[in-house]
Design a protein around this nucleic acid. Structure first.
Length: 171
DNA sequence: CCACGGTGGTAGA
DNA sequence: TCTACCACCGTGG
């Protein structure tokens, strides 16, 4: 009996060479992507089968993630649900989606892009709050003069992702 | 209101 | 290069 279920969100695993990511979907689209947990992978009982449209979105997510991890150019993405973020954060995330593979921006450039040049520091915070890392490429936002900057998911990931895209960091 | 960041720019070692 | 300091803004307590 699939009686009680928070119908508004579905959580599905994505197996990759880097581990098992977790994708969460709301009615509006992909709302969250989690890096593989270093701790034991959740046993996850196979829940009820998701509705067809969710399965479709998930296929897009899987393909896009696989390509992204390989440093290849973007593939079609499922609709992204940014509704959980503040307006400021959504503006930032929106800009991030426009940064193609192999390209980079500085926190200051992103701040200018949303017409709030002095908020460059807050942009860092918004990047850190990005609910859909990798696909919403917050790793392509570097500090000034091509320096690495930080990364909530762990700098190791940022380095790896950038390296796969052939991006060089100064120092 | 206060403190804290995934910053940036300047000044001096 | 690296450190010290300060200006600045959204977020969360």
């Amino acid at each position: 009996m699939q009686s009680e279920q928070i119908e508004t969100t579905w959580e599905l695993p994505i197996e990759t060479s880097e581990g098992v990511f977790l994708a969460r979907y709301s009615k509006a689209g992909l709302c969250r992507l989690e890096f593989p947990s270093k701790a034991g992978a959740k046993p996850r009982a196979a829940g009820p089968t998701p509705p067809l449209h969710i399965q479709c979105w998930h296929e897009l997510t899987v393909r896009a993630l696989t390509r992204a991890l390989a440093g290849q150019p973007a593939a079609e993405l499922p609709p992204l649900d940014f509704s959980a973020g503040s307006q400021f954060q959504r503006q930032v995330w929106q800009v991030l989606t426009g940064i193609g593979a192999g390209q980079t921006r500085s926190y200051a450039e992103v701040a200018r892009a949303i017409g709030n040049p002095k908020a460059l520091r807050a942009v860092g915070g918004a990047c850190g709050a990005n609910p859909i890392p990798v696909l919403v490429p917050c790793h392509r936002v570097l500090a000034a003069h091509q320096r690495l900057g930080g990364f909530s998911g762990g700098l190791g990931w940022k380095r790896t992702l950038l390296a796969r895209e052939g991006i060089r960091i100064s120092e």
